[in-house]
Design a protein around this nucleic acid. Structure first.
Lengths: 217, 217
DNA sequence: AAAATTTGTTCTATTTTAGTTCTATTTTTT
DNA sequence: AAAAAATAGAACTAAAATAGAACAAATTTT
């Protein structure tokens, strides 16, 4: 029925009409639709008039009105809108921010999800995620600084060498590199001023794996 | 539909009509619309009549009536819609990703905005932003790793000590700490394996200031 | 009913804004 | 490759906005 440009123009005129009761000029329309010449608008207007979507007084300034709206949107518009909607929904994910992990609380026990962080969807995939504010510099050599926001993917176990949130003795949560070693695990900081801790595997619960970092300067 | 002046006049007539039941004279209208001559009103009245918004008895004083008003949405609804749209747009911002800076190209010259990154709106404020993929480890001690995505705020100058995108001799763009020193600037890497470069200020153009880091594991 | 007063009409003229038309390209479609 | 549609730009024409004044018709007052 209508081309994309025709549709856009019609909707623009209708919008201005409804919102202000006034009528845009050809130049204003040209801006709105993204043309650089009025002659294009002229053609579009003629097309819209021919198709009975608008009525106008020729040679009169700002003298046209919408008489009906199309029942169907042009395919291009539909697809455009779908894309945009998807982009919007996909582009960002809101995940809970568990500031400092309350000493000893397993992640599951932290019910408070009032604070959240928006994360670009590129940074998460399937699974559950949460965020932590990094405190201290024990991971500084891994490029994780005090104040950074760590994006963590919830997992109960993790591959060797990953940076994980580990809960020790149900009592203490920390972000460290995980090194498995038979019955024991090593929690390796990334800062030579800190010591690696070696602990029986049974005393350590993995709470998640580091999946991203957000930093704001 | 209507021009500004036509619209204003119509609304004025309608208002007087409703409030007093009477009809304003040309002189009253002239005052209300801000004209200095009645002839202008005459023209406007003709236009409104031609467009079927008013009906009148010619040569009769104060003898015109409004037959319709341009229909428009209540302001409240318009604002509501605007807000909603803004809210949607606010949650995430899409900024262009200038992969590796093409050697020697000032940021402005990189027209390609096809690749973009979604950034949580918390990470940007006013101004223009773009993103860069970090290559190399010259800033590793600042917690900026190879592969990180740097969020840069476009600026032509920057405070001392900031991490900036600097273009040297219109030829080479790099991310370094800026140290101003009279006529020269130092571009300080954050890695002891790299040397600080001291360059005449005139040869260095600031292309932006580091405003955030995104990292994905 | 006549006079006085309002009110609307018309004309001239100028500046600004807006719409039309035409030509030439570019892009898209067939 | 040809045809059709979209686009740009400029030149041109028309209308809107504006003012001011003279005049005519309606209304009100006396």
């Amino acid at each position: 029925m209508l081309t994309e440009k025709q549709y856009n123009l019609l909707m623009f005129i209708n919008k201005i009409n409804k919102e202000t009761g006034r009528c845009p000029s050809f130049d204003e329309m040209k801006e709105a639709v993204g043309l650089k010449s009025k002659s294009g608008i002229h053609a579009l207007i003629n097309a819209l008039e021919e198709r009975n979507f608008i009525r106008r007084l020729k040679h009169r300034a700002r003298a046209l009105e919408v008489i009906r709206l199309p029942r169907f949107k042009p395919q291009a518009i539909v697809e455009e809108e779908k894309k945009r909607e998807q982009a919007l929904q996909n582009s960002v994910v809101s995940i809970p921010l568990y500031g400092k992990i309350a000493a000893g609380l397993p992640i599951e026990a932290i019910a408070d999800e009032t604070e959240t962080v928006s994360v670009p969807f590129e940074m998460v995939s399937l699974g559950q995620y949460y965020a932590l504010k990094i405190e201290g510099d024990s991971m500084i050599e891994a490029g994780i600084l005090d104040g950074d926001t760590a994006i963590i993917r919830k997992q109960n176990q993790a591959d060797d060498g990953k940076i994980v949130v580990a809960l020790i003795d149900n009592n203490e949560a920390t972000l460290k590199v995980l090194k498995k070693n038979g019955d024991t695990v090593k929690l390796v900081p990334c800062n030579k001023d800190y010591k690696t801790r070696t602990i029986e595997a049974s005393r350590v619960k993995i709470q998640g794996v580091l999946s991203g970092i957000l930093r704001k300067y």
